[in-house]
Amino acid sequence: MKAVRLIALSLVLALMIFPLLWMFRVSLMPPGAGLSLEELISPALSLLPYQDILTSGKMALFFFNSLLVGVVVTVANILFCFLSGYAFARHPFPGRRFWFYSVLFVLMIPSHIVIVPLYIMLHKLGMYDTYWALILPFAVNPIGIFLVRQYLETLPTSMEEAARIDGASELQIIFKVVMPLCKPALAVLAIQVFLTNWNSFLFPLIFTSSESVRTLPVALALYQGHQAIDWSHLMAGSSLAVIPVLAVFLVFQRQIVSGITAGAVRQ
């Protein structure tokens, strides 16, 4: 039985990573080579695409920008989405329904429509072409709030009540009791937010123009020319871009499975 499961899992695994192996293979093609079957299974290998990217100097800056924005936005989201999500799940404050709907509202409007007025606003606020334009509007992600709220609904309230009876302050309850219980959800949130930001293209493209604040996806888009795609460089850059997200995933996925589980809750 166990063997069957392992084989099934491995087959699915092969299916899942195959297109990424293709991407990696292309990233090792000599620049200018074609993508036909014959060429891809040929032993031609070239590290030139990687070398070009790693030595082009500015890539380090774009990488740093992406990392900076990603880390700040992720940290902000973990804190803010947790607090807001907690309020929506546990505090019956007036207007709760309204504000919760506002979360969904923002999610449901296509970004191509709001991007124009948002651009005008950021310009008026003097944030255009600064890190702020990439951070502030995204510091509280509606999906994150929704996730935390839904997650808290699966958790029993018994521990919070017990702490309240023991005379713990609201802050203590939030950070010492609820937050640790939410660890798996916050880990998912961290991965999701970092990932979305790391790959975000349209907003950074429209909201910035200088190289000093350019992010990686915008820089990589430059390899997609008007008439031809520079496949090997684009795929090499994309393969490199996977690494930080993978690192974030590996760090946080442990939190998802090894965090204090609700099983520890004394009923």
Binding site: Y119, H123, Y128, F201, I206, S209, S210, E211, L222
Partner: peptide
């Protein structure tokens, strides 16, 4: 000088012009 990308570069121009920037 500001670089435009072929992917969505057109949109960037349009949005900038229509916003007076």
């Amino acid at each position: 000088i500001t670089d435009l990308t072929w992917a969505n570069g057109h949109e960037k121009i349009v949005i900038a012009f229509s916003s007076g920037t």
